[in-house]
C-alpha cells in the first residue's frame, strides 16, 4: 500500500484555508521540494501528469501529500466539447482523486477535442445558450461520476465569437447556478483578455458571483509584437504583473479564497516561486502599498 493510499484510509478530503497561498508544483522542483519541504500553504498539480500509478511522479506526490494539502488542476477533460466525455480519462481522474482526496479539483471553461482529435490546448468557447447547455451537461456528468464538485476556471481567449449572446462572467455565473460547482478565477487571464479584447476587468470582477469563487490564480504574461499590433500571451512564464497584483489587492477586499502562483514555462528557481507566493501573502495582508508594487 502506498503512503498516499494509507493516508486516505485515515482521513477525509483535505482542506485549504481561505487565506492560504500555494504554488503550482512542477517537475524541475520535485527534488528540492522533497529535500527542503519549504513553508508553503498548499500545492496544485496538473492532474494528468499523475495518472500513471507506477510513475516516479506518483512517488513524489505520495511524499509531498503527507506535508501539503493538494489541488488537482485538470487540462484534459475538454468540458466545452461536443464530443462524448472521455470515459477512460475520467476513470483515471477518479482513481487519482480517490487516492489523494485533494482539497480542490478544477478544470477549464474551454474545449480541447473534436471528433476524437485532441489538441493539447485550451480552446475558446462561444458564450451561447447551446454551449452553456453542453458544458453544464458534461460538467454535471463529471461531478456525478466523481462524487465531488469541481471548480471551473475562466480561460484566456485571444478572440471572441460574434455569436456569443452573453458575457464570460454571465456564462460562468450560470454554470455555477446550474451545476453547483465553484469558480476558479484566474486574475491574469482576466487582465490579458481585458487588454486583448478591450474588456473591463473591474466590471468583470464586480459581476462575477463572489460567493462561487473558491480559488484564485495569479500568473505572468508575455507581450508579443505582431504585424498588426501587440497582443498579450498568457504564457505563465514570468512574475505576476503590477496590474494583476492590483486586481488581486482590490478583489481580496471582497473575496476570500486561496490563491496560487502559477508558473508553467521558463520555470524559475523554486526560491523565485516562493518569493512570489510570499509577495501574494503580503498583498493579501495589505502590507504592500501601491507604490511598492513591482
Amino acid at each position: 500500500m502506498t503512503q498516499a493510499s494509507s493516508r486516505v484510509e485515515n482521513s477525509q478530503s483535505q482542506s485549504i484555508s481561505k487565506n492560504a497561498i500555494g504554488i503550482g508544483l512542477r517537475s524541475p522542483h520535485y527534488q528540492q521540494m522533497l529535500a527542503e519541504r519549504p513553508q508553503i500553504d498548499w500545492l496544485e498539480v496538473h492532474s494528468e501528469n499523475f495518472f500513471n500509478q507506477s510513475s516516479a511522479q506518483r512517488q513524489v506526490l505520495d511524499q509531498l501529500a503527507l506535508d501539503y494539502p493538494l489541488s488537482f488542476h485538470g487540462i484534459g477533460l475538454s468540458l466545452g466539447s461536443t464530443d462524448p466525455l472521455n470515459k477512460q480519462h475520467l476513470q483515471q481522474m477518479k482513481a487519482l482523486i480517490d487516492c489523494y482526496q485533494p482539497a480542490l479539483i478544477s478544470e477549464h471553461l474551454s474545449w480541447s477535442s473534436s471528433n476524437s482529435r485532441y489538441f493539447n490546448d485550451l480552446l475558446p468557447v462561444p458564450y451561447t445558450e447551446e454551449s452553456l447547455g453542453i458544458f453544464c451537461d458534461r460538467l454535471n456528468q463529471v461531478q456525478d461520476f466523481l462524487g465531488r464538485a469541481l471548480l471551473v476556471e475562466n480561460p484566456t481567449t485571444y478572440l471572441a465569437f460574434s455569436d456569443s449572446s452573453m458575457q464570460e462572467w454571465e456564462f460562468l455565473n450560470e454554470i455555477h447556478r446550474r451545476c453547483h460547482c465553484g469558480l476558479l478565477l484566474d486574475l491574469n487571464n482576466i487582465y490579458v483578455n481585458s487588454i486583448n479584447l478591450g474588456l473591463d476587468a473591474k466590471v468583470y470582477l464586480q459581476q462575477i458571483d463572489i460567493a462561487a469563487v473558491q480559488e484564485i490564480h495569479l500568473a505572468g504574461f508575455t507581450r508579443r509584437q505582431l504585424e498588426n499590433g501587440e497582443i498579450l500571451i498568457d504564457t505563465h512564464g514570468s512574475r505576476v504583473s503590477k496590474a494583476v497584483w492590483q486586481l488581486f489587492r482590490d478583489f481580496r477586499h471582497r473575496c476570500s479564497a486561496p490563491a496560487l502562483i502559477e508558473w508553467d514555462s521558463d520555470i524559475p528557481a523554486l526560491e523565485e516561486l516562493l518569493s512570489q507566493a510570499e509577495l501574494a501573502k503580503q498583498h493579501q495582508q495589505g502590507v504592500v502599498s501601491k507604490e511598492q508594487l513591482p
Partner: peptide, 21 residues
C-alpha cells in the same frame, strides 16, 4: 464562417492557437 472578432485579423488570431498547439 466562424464569426470571430478580436484585436487582430482573424488569420493572425487563429495562428496564435495553431502555433501554440
Amino acid at each position: 464562417a466562424l464569426n470571430i472578432t478580436g484585436p487582430l485579423p482573424v488569420e493572425q488570431l487563429m495562428s496564435l492557437y495553431r502555433n501554440n498547439f
